[in-house]
Amino acid sequence: MNKYLYIDHVGRAYPSLDPDAPRGATVDVFSDVTFELRQGEFMSMIGHSGCGKSTLLNILAGFDQPTTGGVFLEGKPITKPGLERMVVFQSFALMPWLTAFENVRLAVRQAHPDWPAAEIDAWTHKYLDLMNLTNAARKRPAFLSGGMRQRVGLARAFAVNPKLLLLDEPFAQIDALTRGSIQDELMRMWQETRGTVFMVTHDVDEAILLSDRIALMTNGPGAELAEIVEVDIPRPRTRASLIDDPRYMKLRNHILQFLVSGARRAAPAKPPTPSPVAVPA
């Protein structure tokens, strides 16, 4: 197995907020999560709020540290944030005092400190154009819609060609109609760059549309990785073609069943490492 990104028995505990708990008591958000991503793979993680999926993403980004276990990218442990792992934030995280162009340029300049200014500008414009932001380049985030802001966020992340792209519920704050077109743009960009993507989401349809594999988390606290389902629907996928695909309905029902029934582990015995489970077509 090509362990491009390896999440090795990772757990994260926080101090307990329960007033009756003894001093120093901790609560496991999730524990013993192990899986890996292949290079060029698009993987999503679904779970109810509080299952620690965003915490895991923060650990992969280097914003947070695991309590147990470790995360490795190309065999090297991840300890701090860096340009090789770009995050697209749910809250967009654009500097409101900079224009869309300046927000993207900021990352490009950091990634290529040896480039002359003209080259940095040209590269920045190229990625703004790719995300259909040509006319928004000189606007500040406050003058852009939610969808446009997240396009800037995606342009910033793609522009530095990261080894790993981390999407933290990237479309949660965007209206449903705009969401579709940005998902299409994301898919197009990903297919062009063939980067490795890890996305955290609440949206089952979004996960199926975009992912190669989907990781399902049980409910927190004390969440675990329940199973990983393979999305065996050939690409290119569109929302229109998905709806008529029986594999899509089957997959969708399987994931919704899992979430609605309380997000518990299906198998009675716990395997040492959850292996990818292919859903029969």
Binding site: F63, K80, P81, G82, L83, V87, A93, Q110
Partner: peptide, 8 residues
Amino acid sequence: RVAAMVEM
């Protein structure tokens, strides 16, 4: 976080 991510 963005500042740390782009290694400023």
